[in-house]
Protein backbone atom coordinates (compact mmCIF):
# COMPACT_ATOMS: atom_id res chain seq x y z
CA UNK A 1 0.00 0.00 0.00
CA UNK A 2 2.80 2.39 0.95
CA UNK A 3 4.49 2.13 -2.41
CA UNK A 4 1.25 3.35 -3.96
CA UNK A 5 1.84 6.74 -2.37
CA UNK A 6 4.20 9.37 -3.66
CA UNK A 7 7.62 9.58 -2.04
CA UNK A 8 8.18 12.72 0.07
CA UNK A 9 10.62 13.99 -2.54
CA UNK A 10 7.92 14.06 -5.22
CA UNK A 11 5.32 15.48 -2.87
CA UNK A 12 7.90 18.19 -2.23
CA UNK A 13 8.03 18.98 -5.96
CA UNK A 14 4.25 19.29 -6.05
CA UNK A 15 4.14 21.52 -2.98
CA UNK A 16 6.87 23.70 -4.45
CA UNK A 17 4.92 23.96 -7.71
CA UNK A 18 1.81 24.80 -5.71
CA UNK A 19 3.75 27.61 -4.03
CA UNK A 20 4.72 29.02 -7.43
CA UNK A 21 1.09 28.79 -8.60
CA UNK A 22 -0.20 30.57 -5.49
CA UNK A 23 2.37 33.36 -5.49
CA UNK A 24 2.11 33.93 -9.23
CA UNK A 25 -1.69 34.08 -9.22
CA UNK A 26 -1.72 36.35 -6.18
CA UNK A 27 0.73 38.79 -7.79
CA UNK A 28 -1.20 38.63 -11.07
CA UNK A 29 -4.51 39.26 -9.28
CA UNK A 30 -3.20 42.38 -7.55
CA UNK A 31 -1.51 43.83 -10.63
CA UNK A 32 -4.42 42.95 -12.95
CA UNK A 33 -6.94 44.57 -10.58
CA UNK A 34 -5.02 47.87 -10.69
CA UNK A 35 -4.52 47.68 -14.44
CA UNK A 36 -8.10 46.54 -15.00
CA UNK A 37 -9.42 49.52 -13.05
CA UNK A 38 -7.33 51.88 -15.20
CA UNK A 39 -8.55 50.13 -18.36
CA UNK A 40 -12.16 50.37 -17.22
CA UNK A 41 -11.79 54.11 -16.56
CA UNK A 42 -10.25 54.50 -20.02
CA UNK A 43 -13.05 52.47 -21.60
CA UNK A 44 -15.85 54.57 -20.08
CA UNK A 45 -14.05 57.91 -20.55
CA UNK A 46 -16.09 60.36 -22.65
CA UNK A 47 -13.04 61.19 -24.79
CA UNK A 48 -12.31 58.85 -27.69
CA UNK A 49 -8.65 59.54 -27.13
CA UNK A 50 -8.98 57.26 -24.10
CA UNK A 51 -11.89 54.99 -24.91
CA UNK A 52 -10.67 53.75 -28.29
CA UNK A 53 -7.25 52.50 -27.20
CA UNK A 54 -8.93 50.84 -24.20
CA UNK A 55 -11.51 49.24 -26.48
CA UNK A 56 -8.75 47.94 -28.78
CA UNK A 57 -6.83 46.49 -25.83
CA UNK A 58 -9.90 44.71 -24.46
CA UNK A 59 -10.78 43.31 -27.85
CA UNK A 60 -7.26 42.07 -28.68
CA UNK A 61 -6.49 40.53 -25.30
CA UNK A 62 -9.91 38.92 -24.82
CA UNK A 63 -10.11 37.46 -28.30
CA UNK A 64 -6.75 35.71 -28.55
CA UNK A 65 -5.68 32.63 -26.60
CA UNK A 66 -3.62 33.18 -23.46
CA UNK A 67 -1.20 30.48 -24.62
CA UNK A 68 -0.38 32.42 -27.80
CA UNK A 69 0.00 35.61 -25.77
CA UNK A 70 2.44 33.86 -23.44
CA UNK A 71 4.42 32.52 -26.40
CA UNK A 72 4.46 36.01 -27.83
CA UNK A 73 5.85 37.57 -24.64
CA UNK A 74 8.28 34.76 -24.01
CA UNK A 75 9.67 34.14 -27.50
CA UNK A 76 8.48 37.13 -29.51
CA UNK A 77 9.03 40.05 -27.16
CA UNK A 78 12.49 38.88 -26.19
CA UNK A 79 13.45 39.00 -29.87
CA UNK A 80 12.27 42.63 -29.99
CA UNK A 81 13.95 43.80 -26.78
CA UNK A 82 17.24 45.64 -26.88
CA UNK A 83 20.02 43.24 -25.95
CA UNK A 84 21.04 45.23 -22.89
CA UNK A 85 17.57 44.97 -21.35
CA UNK A 86 17.35 41.26 -22.08
CA UNK A 87 20.68 40.62 -20.38
CA UNK A 88 19.62 42.74 -17.42
CA UNK A 89 16.35 40.79 -17.10
CA UNK A 90 18.18 37.50 -17.28
CA UNK A 91 20.84 38.28 -14.69
CA UNK A 92 19.89 37.69 -11.10
CA UNK A 93 19.58 40.85 -9.04
CA UNK A 94 19.32 40.93 -5.34
CA UNK A 95 17.51 43.23 -3.01
CA UNK A 96 17.31 43.04 0.73
CA UNK A 97 13.97 44.23 1.97
CA UNK A 98 13.93 44.45 5.75
CA UNK A 99 13.83 40.76 6.71
CA UNK A 100 13.37 39.10 3.36
CA UNK A 101 15.89 38.80 0.58
CA UNK A 102 14.00 39.08 -2.71
CA UNK A 103 15.25 36.65 -5.30
CA UNK A 104 15.23 37.89 -8.88
CA UNK A 105 12.65 35.84 -10.81
CA UNK A 106 13.54 33.84 -13.91
CA UNK A 107 12.68 35.19 -17.34
CA UNK A 108 9.93 32.52 -17.54
CA UNK A 109 8.43 33.92 -14.37
CA UNK A 110 8.60 37.50 -15.64
CA UNK A 111 7.06 36.61 -19.00
CA UNK A 112 4.37 34.52 -17.29
CA UNK A 113 3.52 37.28 -14.83
CA UNK A 114 3.46 39.92 -17.54
CA UNK A 115 1.33 37.88 -19.97
CA UNK A 116 -1.14 36.69 -17.32
CA UNK A 117 -1.54 40.20 -15.92
CA UNK A 118 -2.31 41.82 -19.26
CA UNK A 119 -4.78 39.03 -20.11
CA UNK A 120 -6.54 39.02 -16.73
CA UNK A 121 -6.74 42.84 -16.63
CA UNK A 122 -8.79 42.83 -19.83
CA UNK A 123 -11.39 40.60 -18.15
CA UNK A 124 -11.34 42.47 -14.86
CA UNK A 125 -11.89 45.78 -16.69
CA UNK A 126 -15.15 44.44 -18.12
CA UNK A 127 -16.30 43.25 -14.68
CA UNK A 128 -15.64 46.72 -13.29
CA UNK A 129 -17.49 48.26 -16.19
CA UNK A 130 -20.62 46.24 -15.51
CA UNK A 131 -20.22 47.20 -11.85
CA UNK A 132 -20.19 50.88 -12.75
CA UNK A 133 -23.21 50.41 -14.98
CA UNK A 134 -24.99 48.76 -12.07
CA UNK A 135 -24.86 51.92 -9.95
CA UNK A 136 -28.29 53.58 -10.27
CA UNK A 137 -28.19 56.94 -12.12
CA UNK A 138 -30.14 58.47 -9.24
CA UNK A 139 -27.13 57.99 -6.98
CA UNK A 140 -24.99 60.20 -9.20
CA UNK A 141 -27.74 62.80 -9.55
CA UNK A 142 -28.26 62.83 -5.79
CA UNK A 143 -24.53 63.30 -5.13
CA UNK A 144 -24.42 66.14 -7.64
CA UNK A 145 -27.44 67.72 -5.98
CA UNK A 146 -25.55 67.59 -2.68
CA UNK A 147 -22.81 69.69 -4.30
CA UNK A 148 -20.17 66.94 -4.76
CA UNK A 149 -17.51 67.69 -7.35
CA UNK A 150 -17.26 65.16 -10.23
CA UNK A 151 -14.18 63.61 -8.59
CA UNK A 152 -15.97 63.29 -5.27
CA UNK A 153 -18.96 61.70 -6.99
CA UNK A 154 -16.62 59.10 -8.43
CA UNK A 155 -14.56 58.40 -5.36
CA UNK A 156 -17.29 58.54 -2.73
CA UNK A 157 -20.43 57.41 -4.51
CA UNK A 158 -19.83 55.47 -7.71
CA UNK A 159 -16.64 53.52 -6.98
CA UNK A 160 -17.57 52.03 -3.58
CA UNK A 161 -20.89 50.76 -4.95
CA UNK A 162 -19.43 49.58 -8.25
CA UNK A 163 -16.73 47.72 -6.38
CA UNK A 164 -19.25 45.90 -4.23
CA UNK A 165 -21.35 44.94 -7.25
CA UNK A 166 -18.30 43.62 -9.08
CA UNK A 167 -16.95 41.66 -6.13
CA UNK A 168 -18.43 38.25 -7.02
CA UNK A 169 -17.39 38.34 -10.70
CA UNK A 170 -14.03 39.76 -9.63
CA UNK A 171 -13.45 36.73 -7.41
CA UNK A 172 -14.39 34.59 -10.40
CA UNK A 173 -11.59 36.28 -12.32
CA UNK A 174 -9.15 35.56 -9.48
CA UNK A 175 -10.16 31.90 -9.71
CA UNK A 176 -9.50 32.09 -13.45
CA UNK A 177 -6.08 33.59 -12.70
CA UNK A 178 -5.26 30.54 -10.56
CA UNK A 179 -6.45 28.15 -13.28
CA UNK A 180 -4.83 30.13 -16.10
CA UNK A 181 -1.49 30.18 -14.32
CA UNK A 182 -1.27 26.51 -15.36
CA UNK A 183 -0.59 27.69 -18.93
CA UNK A 184 2.78 29.06 -17.93
CA UNK A 185 4.01 25.46 -17.88
CA UNK A 186 4.16 25.79 -21.68
CA UNK A 187 6.91 28.39 -21.34
CA UNK A 188 8.73 26.26 -18.80
CA UNK A 189 7.65 27.73 -15.47
CA UNK A 190 7.70 25.02 -12.80
CA UNK A 191 4.24 25.65 -11.35
CA UNK A 192 1.76 23.01 -10.16
CA UNK A 193 0.71 21.51 -13.52
CA UNK A 194 4.32 21.39 -14.66
CA UNK A 195 5.31 19.68 -11.42
CA UNK A 196 2.50 17.11 -11.70
CA UNK A 197 3.62 16.21 -15.20
CA UNK A 198 7.23 15.99 -14.03
CA UNK A 199 6.33 13.72 -11.12
CA UNK A 200 4.24 11.60 -13.46
CA UNK A 201 7.10 11.03 -15.93
CA UNK A 202 9.52 10.22 -13.08
CA UNK A 203 7.33 7.88 -11.06
CA UNK A 204 4.68 6.60 -13.52
CA UNK A 205 2.20 7.15 -10.70
CA UNK A 206 -0.12 9.13 -12.96
CA UNK A 207 -3.17 8.87 -10.76
CA UNK A 208 -1.41 10.11 -7.64
CA UNK A 209 0.52 12.90 -9.38
CA UNK A 210 -2.50 14.35 -11.18
CA UNK A 211 -4.72 13.61 -8.19
CA UNK A 212 -2.66 15.67 -5.76
CA UNK A 213 -2.37 18.56 -8.23
CA UNK A 214 -6.11 18.48 -8.96
CA UNK A 215 -6.95 18.42 -5.26
CA UNK A 216 -4.70 21.43 -4.63
CA UNK A 217 -6.37 23.41 -7.42
CA UNK A 218 -9.84 22.56 -6.12
CA UNK A 219 -8.78 23.49 -2.58
CA UNK A 220 -7.61 26.91 -3.80
CA UNK A 221 -10.86 27.54 -5.67
CA UNK A 222 -12.92 26.51 -2.61
CA UNK A 223 -10.90 28.86 -0.37
CA UNK A 224 -11.51 31.79 -2.75
CA UNK A 225 -15.20 30.89 -2.91
CA UNK A 226 -15.49 30.80 0.89
CA UNK A 227 -13.57 34.06 1.22
CA UNK A 228 -16.03 35.62 -1.21
CA UNK A 229 -19.04 34.40 0.76
CA UNK A 230 -17.52 35.71 3.97
CA UNK A 231 -16.75 39.11 2.41
CA UNK A 232 -20.27 39.41 1.07
CA UNK A 233 -21.83 38.59 4.37
CA UNK A 234 -19.66 41.26 5.98
CA UNK A 235 -20.30 43.89 3.31
CA UNK A 236 -23.67 43.22 1.73
CA UNK A 237 -24.27 44.50 -1.79
CA UNK A 238 -26.16 47.79 -2.18
CA UNK A 239 -29.89 47.48 -1.71
CA UNK A 240 -29.44 45.10 1.20
CA UNK A 241 -29.73 48.06 3.62
CA UNK A 242 -27.16 49.27 6.08
CA UNK A 243 -23.45 48.65 5.31
Amino acid sequence: MLDELLAPKYLGWLIEGFGVTLLLSALVSVAATALGLALCLGRIAPSRLWSWPARAWLSVFRNTPLLVQLFFWYFGASALMPEGLLIWLNTPHHWDLALFGVRWPSFEYLAGFFGLTLYTAAFIAEEFRSGVRGVPAGQIAAAQALGFTPLQVWLNVVMPQAFRISLPPLLGQYMNAVKNSSLTMAIGLAELSYASRQVETETFKTFQAFGVATALYILTIIVIELAGQWLQRRRPAPGAAGA
Partner: peptide
Amino acid sequence: VSNREMVYPTEIFLFVALVYFIFCS
Protein backbone atom coordinates in the same frame (compact mmCIF):
# COMPACT_ATOMS: atom_id res chain seq x y z
CA VAL B 1 7.71 26.64 -37.34
CA SER B 2 9.18 29.00 -34.73
CA ASN B 3 11.57 26.32 -33.47
CA ARG B 4 12.59 25.33 -36.99
CA GLU B 5 13.20 28.85 -38.27
CA MET B 6 14.59 30.18 -34.99
CA VAL B 7 14.60 33.79 -36.21
CA TYR B 8 11.12 35.33 -36.46
CA PRO B 9 9.12 34.34 -33.36
CA THR B 10 7.54 37.80 -33.07
CA GLU B 11 6.11 37.72 -36.58
CA ILE B 12 4.92 34.14 -36.24
CA PHE B 13 3.05 34.65 -32.98
CA LEU B 14 1.58 37.96 -34.12
CA PHE B 15 0.20 36.25 -37.20
CA VAL B 16 -1.18 33.33 -35.21
CA ALA B 17 -2.80 35.72 -32.73
CA LEU B 18 -4.40 37.52 -35.67
CA VAL B 19 -5.94 34.28 -36.98
CA TYR B 20 -7.44 33.49 -33.55
CA PHE B 21 -8.57 37.10 -33.27
CA ILE B 22 -10.49 36.82 -36.53
CA PHE B 23 -12.19 33.58 -35.38
CA CYS B 24 -13.11 34.92 -31.95
CA SER B 25 -14.15 38.46 -32.83
